[in-house]
Each structure stands twice: as C-alpha cells, then as structure tokens.
Amino acid sequence: MASQAHLAIEATGLVKRFGETSAVDGVDLAVHPGTVYGVLGPNGAGKTTTIRMLATLIRPDEGTARVLGHDVVTEAAAVRASVSLTGQLASVDEDLTGRENLILLGRLLGLKRQDAKNRATELLEAFGLSEASGRLVKHFSGGMRRRLDIAASIVVTPQLMFLDEPTTGLDPRSRNQVWEIVRALVAEGTTILLCTQYLEEADQLAGRIAVIDHGRVIAEGTPSQLKASVGSGSLHVRLMNPEQRPEAERLLEHALGTVVLEADPAALSATCAGGDDATLALSRLSSSGVRVADFSLGQPTLDEVFLALTGHPADAPDDGSTSLQEEHAV
C-alpha cells in the first residue's frame, strides 16, 4: 500500500531512445496518490513512451521511476500487480465479446470462475454495456469500446490507472461519458495518469498537468497556472473577406498579443485574457472596416499553448501507430 506520504509515481530523468532519436529525453514526474495527473502534448511528444515505461512494458535507457513505491525495472512484477493500463489502441480483444473480455481478465487476475462472471455482469451494467455484452467487440462503437476498455482496467480495482488518450477519436457525447467515468473513479480515490492531446481534457480532469514536447517536460503546474502562463483564453475570428486578414492580424496583434493564422484563409485567433479585451479588439476591427463573419471566445488550443510555451506550433503528424509516431520526434 502506498501511504499518503509517498508519491504514487516518481520518475527522474527518464530517457528512451529509438535508434538515433530520443523519444523521451529526461522526463521527471511526481504524482501524488488519489489525484489525476495530466500529461499533455502532441503526437510524437513522448507521452505513450513515458506511459509504457511506467507500466513496465519497455525499459528506460536512463533514469529511474518508482510506481507505488516499486522500481519499474527491478520490481516490475510488483508494479504490474497494482496498476492497470488502458492503451491508446483499445486494449481489449476485438475477436471476443464484451463479457468474454471481462471474464478473461478476471480469470487472469486470479478471480475464481464464478467471481469473474459476477464481476463481468456488474461492470457491464455499470458501464452501460449489458445490452451489447454478447456482441463481438469489433462490432462495438468507439465510445462503447472505450467504456469496455476502462471497465477492463478495473476488473480488479487498481491503485493506479494509466489512461492513454482515452477520448481521441470519440464524438462529444461519448467523450463526456468517459470524462464522467474518470471523475467517478477519482472520487473513489484511484490515482490516474492521463495522457492527452487536448488542453480542455487535461483542464477538466487533471489536478496537475505536465506539458511535454520532444520528450521533455516544458511546463508543469495546475491547469490555472498553465493557462495563466499562456493567456486564459483565445479569441477566434473568421472574416467575411480573407483579403482583410493581414489587416486583422495587425489590429489583433496590437490589441491582444500573439496571433495565430488558422488553416482557413479567413480565420485567425489571438490569445486573450478575458471578455473585455475581446470586446475591445472586435470593436477595433469593426471601426477599421474589417468585417467579421463570426467569432468565438474559447480556451487556448494545444497549438496556442505550445506557441506560448515554446515559440513553435505543436507539430502533430496524424499517424495512428504508436511505435512509429514515437520515433517521429525531433
């Protein structure tokens, strides 16, 4: 049992190289028990590699990590006995039914046959999967698969859960369901290490966040500290006429600060401390004859966080494969 005095995860100087590239290049983490710790970064930043080292799937090349007081290399078996992993690819067997997946894991974790069946029934009901329980997982929707994945991670209650991008690719409704489930798990005292590409997700769920880029932690703190360092929000503007964008860029830069040109040739966004600043900036646009089609005030995107922290945008290769994208860094 990890006492409150101990950290649930304590990593120092973790390094993992793939060939010439350092996917993880000196990561330190300190996660307190009973909290959600967010690891935020784009694809290829080293998030998945970090999780895989902490979950004992790969060995670090340098550095040390203790999970629940156990060294991930020399006491890997003890770590495995008290954590669970929900991988980026859904970590369930697509060729079995939802119920069979849960019974399989229950049996492997040492439950007796009848106990494993009872636990499967309980979890399927709790996660809203009892109607689909006899269906092969390959026929599940993305949201159902994620819920089953999380259910599979708590067949035997873990002290610590690794959640790797639990909502990537989900529709908003399924995403909200996953968030609600994560909150329920935390309310019962589970420690969670959450990897995500979405600032909003880390903000919603995590008590502390480490921003990771090119295998290094480039910022660490509570969500509000992090947002304060990048501006609390951003103003997105879409113009009637794309030709007016340079003019709009100049005006917004003057009124607000850092401006990001978006992929849409008529759109741009600027970091923005609050509603008053936004109102002022919009009236400047209007008085200079720049016509605005629509605008919105939102949280900074990961791109804006990265721009503010590193001076370069997050390069996010859209690549589904974990091993390849981890090799991409640098």
Binding site: A81, S82, R107, L108, L109, G110, L111, K112, D115, E122, L123, E125, A126, F127, G128, L129, S130, E131, A132, R147, I154, V156, T157, Q177, E180, I181, R183, A184, L185, A187, E188, T190
Partner: peptide
C-alpha cells in the same frame, strides 16, 4: 441508449479486495 451508471461505477471500483494472482 445505455449510458454508464456512475453510481454503479463508483461502487464497482470501491471493491478493493485483490485476489492472489492466477
């Protein structure tokens, strides 16, 4: 449409008994 029952999720995870490994 079968959403998760959060109360049941909390009950399910509060079971702390960990069996001996298989």
């Amino acid at each position: 449409t079968q959403a998760a029952d959060l109360e049941a999720v909390r009950r399910a995870i509060s079971t702390t008994a960990r069996p001996a490994p298989a």
